[in-house]
Design a protein around this nucleic acid. Sequence first.
DNA 1: ATGGTTGTTTAACAA
Length: 259
Amino acid sequence: MKIATWNVNSLKVRLDSALAWLGEADPDVVCLQEIKLVDDVFPRAPFEELGYNIAVHGQKTYNGVAILSKFPLEDIRVRLPGNDEDDQARYVEALIASPRPVRVASIYLPNGNPVDSPKYPYKLAWMARLKAHAYELLREETALVLAGDYNVIPAACDARNPDAWVEDALFRRETRLAFNAFANLGLTDAFRACNTQSGQYSFWDYQAGAWQRDLGIRIDHLMLSAQAADRLEAAGIDKDVRGRDKPSDHVPVWCVLAQ
DNA sequence: ATGGTTGTTTAACAA
C-alpha cells in the first residue's frame, strides 16, 4: 500500500497538477494539506473518477486537509482533540479499510512564525495536543500513519543551510524538542528510515530563487507506529514535481507498506 | 539584501 502526503497550497490552483501526479504515482492513499477551500466546493468528481474515496475538513482561504483513498474510508474524524475553541482546519483521520487496515491522519501543523507572536505558542500547544492524541491512537497497537506538513525540520541534515533556520519556528530548539517528544512515543520517520543521504528536501520557498539554488528543507513527514514501520518497504520524495509549471512550494512524500 | 514569491482576496495576511 502506497501512502503519500502533499501540501498542495490551494487545491483550486493545483487541481490539474494533482490529477497528473496521481496518474503517475498511483498512490492508494493521499493526505492533502492547504487545500484552502470549504467542503462544499471540494472538486470530488475528478478524484472519484480516478477511484478515490474522500474525507475532507475544509476551510475558506486558509488551511484545509483531506484524505483520498482507493479503499473505503471508515471512522472519519476531524479536528484535533484538546481545544474546542480551535477552528483552524488542520486535522482529519480515517481508517483505511483495506485487507490489512491502516489508520491514517492528514496533518497541517501550524507554521508558528513569527516566534514572538501568538502564533508560536499556538504551534507548541498544537504539538502538545498532537502528542496526546497520538498517545491515545498508539494504545490501539495497530498500523498508524500520521502524515502531513509538520512545519518541523527534524535535524540539521534536513536543511541545506541549517544556520539560516536556527531562530525560525520550524527549527528552533523548543520546536525540535517538542517534535522529539512526539516521535519518542514510538513513531518512525518513514523517509529517514529508508534513506541515508542528506540533502533531500520536501519544500523550497517561492522566494529568492530557493528552488534554483536548492535551498530546501524537509518538513513533510510520514510518522509510523511500530505495526506500520514493521511493514515499511520503501519511502521517497517526488522532487521533480517542484520543477513543473505552477508548482506548490511543497512536493509529495510517500512510503510503501507491505500489502 | 529588513529583500524575494505565491495564493487568497482585492489591502493585507499567511507562508
